[in-house]
């Protein structure tokens, strides 16, 4: 067992722990914090089903962003859809047996990888070219973009130029399930890829990447427009009512 492989093994245990605990912690926090008033951005659906559909359109099509800015929507959607395909394609490393669907989408995953990088490049360019977006950009925004772009580029590099031993990668991750440490291919590009992915998992619950769970908890999007029909009262507001 090489030193590097065991460092990566511990790193992935740590990163997974941070991701899961951090994210659960945030989700519980969001879920526990009441929304004391009805504030859906109207026109809003007047049924639960309607709200579910609204949310689905936001998650799948980025509906509001589409109305807001076509270029950002285009690049943003390409990036996320690419990311989605890549994630599906990557499931083959951590699932055994590999589900048929995952096997079937493998070829699309590669286009996903390219799309992802193209989308990110467009989003990044906006941060330099549009004065308004430049103004609101912090260093961390550049860093996150750099991080994901580098993950994508190293991945594509492996795919097209410097193949790595995928079966060995898979063995390494499968081993982690049973606390067995297997060797990773000693491929610098792969190691960079994996190092940065671990970094991504770790920062996820502590950065703006919280937009992913956040969307589902956004009161302007997830509330039903029925204030006149149903009384809506937060627990802390109910206590006010009991005071004289």
């Amino acid at each position: 067992m090489s030193f590097i492989s065991s460092v990566f093994a511990y790193l992935y245990y740590f990163a997974t722990l941070v991701l899961v605990v951090g994210l659960l912690n945030k989700i519980v926090q969001y879920a526990r914090t009441p929304a004391p008033l009805k504030i859906p951005t109207t026109p809003a659906p007047i049924t639960r089903t309607g709200v579910t559909l609204r949310m689905l359109r936001e998650v799948v099509f980025f509906e509001s962003l589409f109305r807001g800015n076509k270029w950002t929507w285009l690049f943003g959607w390409i990036f996320h859809f690419g990311l989605f395909l890549v994630t599906l394609r990557h499931l083959r490393y951590i699932l055994e047996p590999v589900p048929v669907v995952i096997t079937m989408i493998q070829p699309f995953g590669i286009y996903g990888g390219i799309a992802m990088v193209v989308g990110l490049a467009g989003l990044w360019a906006r941060r330099f070219l549009v004065d308004r977006v430049q103004y609101i950009t912090a260093r961390s925004d550049h860093l996150i973009l750099g991080l994901i772009v580098t993950i994508g580029l190293t991945g594509l590099f492996m795919r097209f130029f410097m193949h790595t031993d995928i079966m060995q990668v898979k063995a390494f991750y499968q081993g982690l399930y049973h606390f067995e440490f297997h060797l990773l291919p000693a491929d610098p590009v792969l190691l960079i890829h994996l190092l940065l992915v671990a970094a991504l998992l770790i920062i996820f619950p502590y950065s703006k990447l919280l937009h992913a769970p956040g969307l589902f908890f956004s009161p302007t999007r997830n509330q039903v427009d029925n204030a006149r029909d149903q009384r809506h009262l937060a627990p802390w507001a109910r206590r006010l009512e009991q005071q004289p």
Partner: peptide
């Protein structure tokens, strides 16, 4: 702790610029 809107909105913005 009282307003989910505040909590979520302060976390979630990705600085996409659509509102600018």
């Amino acid at each position: 702790g009282k307003y989910r809107s505040l909590r979520v909105y302060l976390d979630a913005c990705v600085k996409c610029g659509a509102c600018t």
